[in-house]
């Protein structure tokens, strides 16, 4: 196995929420202690419901936000805010909403050249333009699109532009924050195929954030299931989809629609609500909604354990 391109150890991000006059300020633990490693050419998928810290993780890895604690090393460099500027060309991000992620006042050519203007000040204008045109071609757009404005494009085309922009600096890691969830199903597959093709060609490592398990199944190599800021299960895609071991993962998987009307449906309906991230229960965060929970579960949070297929549960399923 080659050296990991991204290594995160106990990565955490907390937000202070100012209280009003009478209430005390609280801490939102959006991300509390996540470990993972990413390999070049592989895709690590992060799944979980809204509010589980997926996007916070994406923002921390992309160096938009500083982790509250834990270490993140990218390409062998320990990341601190002072290193952000030099590491910009290693990690780039594609956002969920292609309608908000492109500057409406810039032509496509300018949008693509901007990362080069900032990070490669000695590059000539002609070289930059050549590179931008090459990239337009690479993501499957036509060269006459170079001079157009973002509003002239459809959602799928815009997402291609966003991918092209992210690739302008030759990054080694691409963070994909729900890159297809804002798109039509027919367009989704085109974008996913483009991403697969680019990964093979450029040996990119993908951090793929999603809540859509069918997309993850198609796309990922490894999967981390998150619940309330913690990783509850970390396994390869095949292991997870064949035999989820954490009750939450099992419940999550059971909700995925299948194109097989004959298949036996056993949907697990979870009771109750996601606990507030300002007030995470002392024990296992999932204990309140879990059908296997015991008093032991409510006492202390279980650690992620195991070798290849790691799970944070005292009563893992087999």
């Amino acid at each position: 196995m080659t050296a990991p391109i991204v290594q995160a150890i106990a990565l955490a991000r907390h937000y202070e929420v100012k209280g009003g006059l009478l209430s005390k300020s609280a801490t939102v633990k959006a991300l509390s202690g996540v470990d993972f490693a990413m390999q070049p050419g592989k895709t690590l998928a992060i799944v979980g419901e809204s509010g589980c810290g997926k996007s916070t993780l994406a923002r921390v890895v992309t160096m938009i936000e500083e982790p509250t604690s834990g270490t993140l090393s990218i390409d062998g460099v320990d990341i601190t805010p002072s290193k952000w500027a030099q590491m910009r060309d290693t990690v780039q991000i594609v956002f969920q909403d292609p309608y908000g992620s492109l500057n409406p006042r810039q032509r496509i050519g300018q949008i693509l050249q901007e990362p080069l203007i900032i990070n490669r000040p000695d590059m000539s204008a002609a070289d930059r333009e050549a590179r931008a045109r090459e990239m337009i071609d690479l993501v499957g757009l036509r060269s006459e699109h170079y001079d157009r404005y973002p509003h002239m494009f459809s959602g799928g085309q815009r997402q291609r532009i966003a991918i092209a922009r992210a690739l302008m600096l030759n990054p080694k890691v691409l963070v994909l924050d729900e890159p297809v969830s804002a798109l039509d199903v027919s367009i989704q597959s085109q974008i996913l195929n483009l991403l697969v093709e680019l990964q093979e060609r450029l040996n990119l490592a993908y951090l793929f954030i999603s809540h859509d398990l069918s997309v993850v199944k198609h796309f990922a190599d490894d999967v981390i299931v998150m619940y309330l800021g913690r990783a509850v299960e970390h396994a390869t895609k095949d292991q997870l989809f064949a035999a989820p071991r954490h009750p939450y993962s099992k419940a999550l998987l059971s909700t995925t629609p299948r194109a097989d009307p004959e298949a036996r449906k056993e949907r697990i309906k979870l009771e109750g609500e996601l606990p507030s991230p300002m007030n995470i229960p002392k024990g296992c965060a999932f204990a309140q909604r879990c059908w296997l929970a015991t008093d032991e579960c409510r006492a202390a949070p279980p650690e992620l354990s195991g070798e290849a297929h790691r799970v944070a549960c005292l009563h893992p399923l087999d």
């Binding site: 992309t62 160096m63 938009i64 500027a85 910009r88 780039q92 991000i93 956002f95 992620s101 500057n103 901007e114 990362p115 900032i118 990070n119 966003a162 922009r165 600096l169």
Partner: peptide
Amino acid sequence: TSARVAGA
């Protein structure tokens, strides 16, 4: 945000 990620 993406301009910030690009290093602006």
